[in-house]
């Protein structure tokens, strides 16, 4: 069993809840959709690439983004929908980069398939743009070491897991999830931090993600003690 360090700085588990703010903007075809994707605030892009995940976190295995869902289901452009489903959100560390990739994907498709410009949603089926207003607050759970971290992971809500794995990384603009940041910076658990940051959380349900996190920590807890310097691995740059 590993003898593990204690951090001077506790990991404080936060959680979040949110309200959807409507913009009054809507799109009935690909051109209108693209125009708004280019011009809406970043919080709108964040919302439409994460809203499905927040609302349907029990679904497995591939919660799509709202753009892909609408393009597939309403415009019937399944190929474009598939391209958008497949965007590897985890590789983007800012909303700006993610937005650029979505725009590039749609523009490329429109250029190759001009007939797609002729498709319109029927009234009532338009794409409506909205953003998420996030309310973030602290939970009673804190951890100074890996054991406490392991215990807290089992108790916090899925909204808390969501906040630290998704929202902190992309929306709070840290570029890395909170767990990896703390494990690396405060506990010198570089290997574990790296394992967590290299997960693709978008391909798991939040419940499934919690299980994986717990298992990774359990595995580390069962390992013999290793000097941090022996295990150091480079973390992705934020």
């Amino acid at each position: 069993m590993a003898v593990l360090g204690k951090s001077k700085e506790a990991f404080r588990f936060f959680t979040e809840t949110h309200l959807l703010e409507l913009t009054g903007l809507k799109a009935a075809n690909l051109q209108e959709l693209l125009y708004h994707i280019k011009t809406v605030p970043p919080s709108v892009i964040y919302c439409h690439t994460h809203n499905f995940l927040q609302q349907h976190h029990y679904l497995s295995p591939e919660p799509p983004n709202d753009f892909a869902y609408w393009i597939t289901g309403i415009l019937g452009e399944e190929e474009l929908g598939e391209y958008l489903f497949s965007i590897d959100t985890i590789q983007y560390t800012t909303i700006y980069e993610l937005r650029v990739e979505i725009i590039r994907t749609i523009e490329n498709y429109m250029a190759k398939h001009p007939r797609s410009l002729q498709k319109f949603a029927t009234p009532g089926d338009e794409f409506h743009f909205f953003k998420s207003v996030s309310f973030i607050f602290q939970t009673p759970y804190t951890a100074f070491d890996l054991k406490e971290f392991h215990a807290a992971l089992q108790r916090v809500t899925l909204d808390s897991i969501y906040f630290h794995m998704f929202e902190a990384r992309l929306r709070i603009k840290q570029g890395i999830n909170d767990f990896s940041k703390w494990l690396n910076d405060s506990l010198q658990e570089e290997r574990l931090a790296n394992k967590i940051s290299s997960l693709d959380p978008y391909t798991h349900t939040l419940g499934g993600l919690r299980t994986i996190l717990i298992k990774l920590v359990e595995k580390r807890l069962s390992e013999p003690l290793e000097k941090p310097s022996d295990t150091a691995l480079a973390l992705p740059k934020s």
Partner: peptide, 17 residues
């Protein structure tokens, strides 16, 4: 408003409930 489809272009903040 109760659904996104009910929202209108307005100069004030609009929320979904």
């Amino acid at each position: 408003f109760s659904a996104p489809v009910f929202s209108q272009p307005l100069p004030i903040r609009q929320f979904l409930e």
